[in-house]
Simulated scan of single mutants.
Amino acid sequence: MGPAAATNLVVHSLRDQIREHILEGIVSGRWKPGERIVERRIAVELRVSQTPVREALRELEALRLIDSAPNKGVRVRELKPADLKESYPVRAGLEQVAAELAAGRLAEDLSALEREVAALRAADAALDSEAQVRHTVAFHHELVRAAGNAVLLHTWESLGTEVWTTLSIRWLSPAPREYAQEHQDLVDAFRRRDPEITGLIKEHVLSCAPQV
């Protein structure tokens, strides 16, 4: 890896960290709907240049979490349950295709999915919502990755699944929910080469959508 590539990785890592910092601020209520997010202030707070902060804000705008306008700056969007729900039918369709493409491969090697289920069991037992989000998203990422289709994976990743799952669970999920068993059921379906696996995946994803 040359110096330019190494520098690019560092920049992307920093941008990702800043994006997570801003996202956490939105989720926690530090920045409320309609409130302005000041790029320069974040850069000073995190002791970074404004460039990675600007890139992080662009990503969050692409995910429709913030709005920007000339002479008005960047503000947090007023999100409703329907906004959080919109990506789920699209995601369900993509994961149906992924399940069809990956079914044979996963039936032979389910270790990646089983690893995430084991982590979900621990997260469920600890009522650790952050770990539940992390390993739920990782499970589905492994499923899509197993399809071996770069276009499909890129499209799925562009939906911001982790962001929307985090917001859905923290803002709209009332009671604690156990996630391990429902994902174990999917693993079992792949193992037995269930011909209905694509329908099971679609049903599962849609069941995770916020109720409005």
Rank of each mutant, 00 (worst) to 15 (best):
E35I: 06
L65I: 05
I42H: 10
E35R: 13
L63E: 11
A62E: 14
R64Y: 07
R54H: 15
Q50V: 04
S68Q: 09
R47D: 13
R58S: 15
K85W: 06
E55S: 08
E61M: 12
I42Y: 07
R77A: 01
Q50N: 04
K85F: 01
L46K: 12
A62S: 15
L79T: 03
P33L: 13
E86R: 02
A56N: 03
P81S: 08
R75I: 14
V76C: 14
G29S: 10
A56P: 02
A43F: 00
R30E: 14
T51C: 06
D67W: 03
G73W: 01
G34W: 10
V76G: 11
L79Y: 05
P70C: 06
E86N: 01
R64D: 11
R36I: 13
E78S: 15
E55A: 12
N71E: 03
V48Q: 11
L60T: 08
N71A: 01
R64W: 07
L79N: 02
G34K: 11
A69P: 10
I42G: 11
R64L: 13
K85T: 10
A69L: 14
K32S: 15
L84R: 05
V76W: 12
V76Y: 13
S49F: 09
G73I: 03
S68F: 02
S68R: 10
G29I: 09
R40N: 04
L84E: 04
L84T: 04
E59H: 09
A62N: 13
I66S: 00
N71D: 02
L65V: 11
E61P: 05
R47G: 12
R36S: 15
S68I: 03
I37L: 03
R75A: 14
V44Q: 12
R30V: 14
R36K: 15
W31Y: 12
D67E: 12
K32I: 08
L57E: 04
P81V: 05
P52I: 02
K80I: 09
V44C: 05
L65D: 03
I42K: 04
V76N: 14
G29E: 09
G29A: 11
A82P: 02
E35D: 15
V38P: 00
R40Q: 07
K80N: 08
G34D: 12
R75H: 14
E86F: 00
